[in-house]
């Protein structure tokens, strides 16, 4: 993959910022507005897929080391289970919402207890793993087999 023309490259590197910002917004406000970790993660992954299409696979490899992405992937999943286990420790029940005070308040990011944190974890996991799946399938799966969990 060599990448596309200079116009596409320039525009997509501008648009990238907006897409990533939008993805982060969807993840952070997942408990207040429609969306959440999964949708936001897909948007984050799609921004890098766009870059990959515009600049070619080699650029992404330089810009974003794959081992870091797969570590982020594992970190997301691990955080999610950690939150659930913390619920077991502090709330007495697995997945208990131990920070819970009241239901999500509009415009209050830190409401609804552990849900925003879970959303961040899922966003990391989904974004990283979806990007890895698409990337590894596109380059004739160098590490493709193992990423589909």
């Amino acid at each position: 993959m060599k990448g596309m023309t200079i116009i596409v490259k320039t525009i997509s590197s501008w648009v990238k910022v907006l897409i990533i910002l939008f993805g982060i917004y969807i993840i952070l406000f997942g408990h207040l507005t429609p969306g959440g970790g999964f949708a936001g993660g897909v948007i984050l992954a799609s921004s890098y897929v766009l870059l990959m299409l515009a600049f070619g696979g080699e650029f992404v490899k330089k810009d974003l080391p794959l081992s870091l992405v797969s570590k982020l992937d594992c970190l997301g999943a691990f955080m999610f289970i950690l939150i659930a286990l913390l619920g077991l420790v502090f709330g007495g029940v697995f997945f208990a919402n131990f920070l819970f005070e009241k239901y999500g308040q509009p415009l209050h990011l830190l409401s609804a207890g552990t849900i925003p944190f879970s959303n961040i974890a899922i966003g990391l996991k989904v974004g990283a793993s979806l990007f890895l799946v698409i990337y590894s399938l596109s380059i004739c799966c160098k590490a493709g087999e193992l990423d589909s969990h």
Binding site: V133, S136, L137, C140, C141, G144, E145, S148, H149
Partner: peptide
């Protein structure tokens, strides 16, 4: 997940 696995298996088998 299973689609990604199957497609990657297909690609590998083709190789």
């Amino acid at each position: 997940g299973s689609l990604a696995l199957m497609i990657s298996l297909c690609i590998r088998t083709y190789e």
